[in-house]
């Protein structure tokens, strides 16, 4: 399914589109693993930024992660329409910042799913990207 077809989630400009793929309504991140030192990188790199090796593999992550830390941004840039929840997520070896579909900051350790969702808007319409949803909520929906 193309991003454009996910209109329930993605009517609008997709932010950092090249950094992920969609799998139904779910999102997988494009990452790089270094075959020499083992470091993981998101977004994907051609050259390992830890050891400089060019021997890397391109992979996609699973569709779930674990919250490392989270906050509610109450004063932010206009296009993100505060208040909104941000979270650092640990996803298959990479730590990624994403907005969360939640009313409050997520507790560390919360299991989340990665989806395509709305993260803000501009005068030209909605901004969309990967977002996270606590697993229980996404199962109920």
């Amino acid at each position: 399914m193309s991003i454009a077809e996910l209109d329930a989630y993605s009517t609008g400009t997709v932010v950092t589109e090249g950094n992920f793929v969609t799998d139904g309504p779910e999102v997988r991140l494009r990452v790089t693993r270094c075959l020499d030192c083992g470091e993981s990188w998101f977004p994907a790199l051609e050259q390992c930024a830890a050891c400089g090796s060019l021997r890397t593999s391109s992979e996609v992550t699973g569709t779930t992660g674990t919250v490392y830390a989270s906050t509610v941004v109450r004063i932010g840039l206009r296009q993100f329409e505060a208040p909104y929840v941000l979270a650092y997520l640990d996803v298959d070896g990479v730590r990624v910042l994403a907005q969360a579909v939640a009313a409050e900051a997520l507790v560390a350790g919360t299991e989340v799913g990665l989806r395509l969702g709305r993260i803000g808007s501009t005068t030209e319409g909605a901004l969309c990207s990967y977002v996270c949803i606590p697993v229980e909520r996404s199962e109920q929906s």
Partner: peptide, 30 residues
Amino acid sequence: ALPLASHDLEIAQGMVMPAAYAMRAQRYLH
């Protein structure tokens, strides 16, 4: 909040400087 560097992956998702420290704070308290 002051503008952070442009064309940054996290800023594109809505990161601002207070949020970066807020998450460190949440994790430290935890």
